[in-house]
């Protein structure tokens, strides 16, 4: 009797459970989509608010705050600082990261695990610690009349502490997919290592290079804790200015700044996707 009951219960469970789980999985997906998109969409909507205050419901729409943003020298300077610093970070971290990854892939290095951990370590350090360290070590350093502290260059290098290990990691994985018989063949045909690298290897790993460069750019563009410690009024980046003005009072101008940051990132991601699709088509052909 009880066995029959148990069996019935089991089949009931088997029939019911998938259905319950399906409903739950949809509910969870809905919750997740809402959770992730709320702060994004709310900002996008608020940037078109005409009022000077941040409050819902929004009754009056305009692009007034966009005009305000692009008309303000303070905000435009911050945007330019951000872009210059991000470009510098990209140049520094892709150069250093790609070279190191190539060395790790193609050469025997004594104590490689140690060096690997050392290069990766800054990526796991909180920005506030890195920022404080660099500020203490280089805060008072001057070369002639050139002061490191507050300079864009110092922020570029500080941001590279996060960006370079990431490039290194991505490129290490990418170099591992390369078919080195082709490279060997080019050596056999008389190619010099440097020439072969640029003519044979770089085209093969272009997707990896583009992606890691753009990730480096995005990391630097978004970062603001290190920048907060290392910049002054003239070199402050857009996220730093946003942080400082959020502390005093929030206006829809902040929403515009957020949208502009996010749009830049979105463009970078689209470039990666398009490049990737192009390479896939090339391979298919």
């Amino acid at each position: 009797m009880s066995e029959i009951n148990l069996a019935r219960q089991a089949t009931l469970q088997q029939r019911l459970e998938p259905r319950v789980l399906r409903v739950l999985s949809w509910a969870f997906t809905g919750f997740l989509v809402l959770y992730i998109l709320i702060p994004v969409l709310i900002t996008l909507v608020m940037s078109f608010n005409n009022a000077a205050m941040i409050r819902f419901p929004i009754t009056d729409w305009s692009v007034r705050w966009y005009a305000d943003f692009f008309g303000s020298t303070q905000w435009m300077d911050a945007l330019i600082n951000s872009i210059v610093i991000a470009l510098g970070t990209t140049a520094i971290s892709t150069t250093a990261g790609i070279l190191a990854a190539w060395a790790f892939e193609r050469y025997q290095i004594p104590f490689r695990t140690f060096w690997y951990m050392l290069i990766m370590m800054p990526l796991f350090m909180p920005g506030v610690v890195l920022g404080l360290g660099v500020a203490i070590a280089f805060g008072g350093v001057q070369l002639g009349s050139y002061s490191f502290y507050g300079s864009r260059e110092l922020v570029m290098i500080a941001h590279s502490l996060w960006a370079m290990p990431l490039v290194f990691m991505l490129m290490e994985a990418t170099f591992r997919t390369v078919d080195y018989r082709v490279v060997e063949a080019s050596y056999d045909l008389g190619g010099r290592p440097i020439g072969s690298f640029f003519e044979i290897v770089v085209p093969m790993v272009s997707t990896g290079i583009i992606s890691s460069a753009l990730f480096a750019f995005v990391i630097s563009l978004n970062e603001f804790v290190m920048a907060l410690f290392l910049t002054d009024r003239d070199t402050q980046t857009l996220p730093v200015l946003m942080w400082l003005s959020l502390r005093s009072a929030g206006t829809p101008r902040l929403a515009v700044a957020s949208v502009i940051l996010a749009l830049t990132v979105f463009v970078c991601m689209s470039v990666i996707m398009l490049w990737y699709a192009r390479q896939l088509r090339k391979v298919a052909r």
């Binding site: 709320i38 702060p39 563009l221 978004n222 603001f224 996220p239 959020l246 996010a262």
Partner: peptide, 11 residues
């Protein structure tokens, strides 16, 4: 990929 500051502002 979205700046922490933009997320803070969103919430």
């Amino acid at each position: 990929l979205i700046s922490e500051i933009a997320i803070i502002f969103g919430w």
